[in-house]
Design a binder for these strands. Structure first.
Lengths: 219, 219
DNA sequence: ACCTGAACACCGTTCAAGT
DNA sequence: ACCTGAACACCGTTCAAGT
């Protein structure tokens, strides 16, 4: 909150993200980051208000890496580009995903990827509640699937305390469909995302424009 | 991992969930739970392997509250029921949502809600990769939107350090669409979910069955 | 076998004192 | 004004000792 001299906020942000990328979310500690910067822990308090604020900085760092989206006359294409850009970027920093899912406060810069998605949907002609629903559906899908890839019903292993290691055979009895799916999961994450998004956009386009999905008007 | 006498694992599970519901995720500590149970912290280690295992217990507790789904001949209806049941249940325990999004290990019982969803989708005639994609899309949507309600681009406030409190006016300049949406967000969460799910199911049904969405075969 | 206090190696953050 | 060590109030968990 001050403008001191020993470090730059950008330096701290970069080092914090690097720390999370390297050691995971648990590795992001005030003391650990201070050590990485070769200072005492208290020095960081000259740059951030505390742990919460530090986490926000990390979310910011990731958001700033999401590529900007050019606006064309095809809202569905723009939406796909925006959603894919967000997904691909957070995937580069998997440990940060729980943080972006969890942060209750954001910088206006870190909201830009979401704004790009909302704006593409607005150009489908949606307004008000319809726009809200579409936005929630797309954001939910993008972030939900990004996180599900890391930790979800299909991510490896059942509880290790159940004596047996083969997921297919263990979860298999109680959960046969999941057991089957778990063998395919993660083989081609990009295609999983692309196809899922396509289905969602299909639903969005169908609901809006029974015939073709070209833009209608702006709000 | 043993079968001691002072408590029941079910008692510990119940108390742990109650603790999280009351004090949030940060309130779930080995020491805090022990205190709530009026024992020393070490006693808990006779029932769970450690913190991770305790968190899993809490996820289990929530999953066990998800209502079972009856199988009918209408896969889309079953899917809607299953997805809605999961969403409604996790919403009763909002502090647990980050935990269920994050757990990398699960009990076969806690996978049942996901199995119900996967199974409904399988009854749409999907197999293999197509089934995987549909499953990921639905799970991503359900959990993503549940979490987004708590913390997401539309949840109140911009960073408080930016001097101004009105989200609409602050985020508004940089993110006009979000600013507009934030005024509607959360007014009727149930309708947001229902409509979003409808769009997704619409996409799923259209992709599968150009004419009508009745079940085709089982896998 | 089940239980549990003491102790260790960590946290974030307040406070007070340095320059 | 910016910096920072010492100290406090917490964590999870190991270890050793109890019954």
């Amino acid at each position: 909150m001050a403008r001191p001299a020993k470090f730059t906020l950008a330096e701290i942000r970069r080092e914090a993200l690097a720390l999370v990328d390297r050691d995971g979310l648990a590795g992001l500690t005030m003391r650990g980051l201070a050590a990485a910067l070769k200072t005492g822990p208290m020095t960081l308090y000259n740059y951030v208000d505390g742990k919460e604020s530090l986490e926000e900085l990390v979310v910011d760092a990731v958001a700033s890496e999401v590529p900007p989206v050019a606006v064309t006359s095809d809202w569905a294409a723009d939406l796909t580009v925006a959603a894919t850009g967000l997904w691909a970027t957070v995937r580069l920093h998997p440990a940060v995903i729980p943080l972006v899912l969890t942060r209750r406060t954001s910088t206006s810069a870190s909201l830009r990827p979401a704004e790009d998605i909302a704006s593409a949907l607005a150009r489908s002609g949606r307004t008000g509640f319809d726009l809200l629903v579409a936005f929630r559906a797309v954001m939910g899908f993008v972030m939900g699937i990004a996180q599900a890839e890391l930790a979800g019903p299909l991510t490896s292993h059942i509880d290790p305390r159940q004596e047996a290691t083969d997921l297919a055979s263990i979860a298999g009895e109680a959960n046969p469909t999941l057991a089957q799916l778990s063998q395919l999961a993660g083989e081609d994450a990009r295609r999983e995302f692309d196809e899922g998004l396509r289905i969602l956009v299909l639903g969005l386009a169908r609901e809006r424009a029974p015939e073709g999905g070209s833009p209608e008007n702006r709000i």
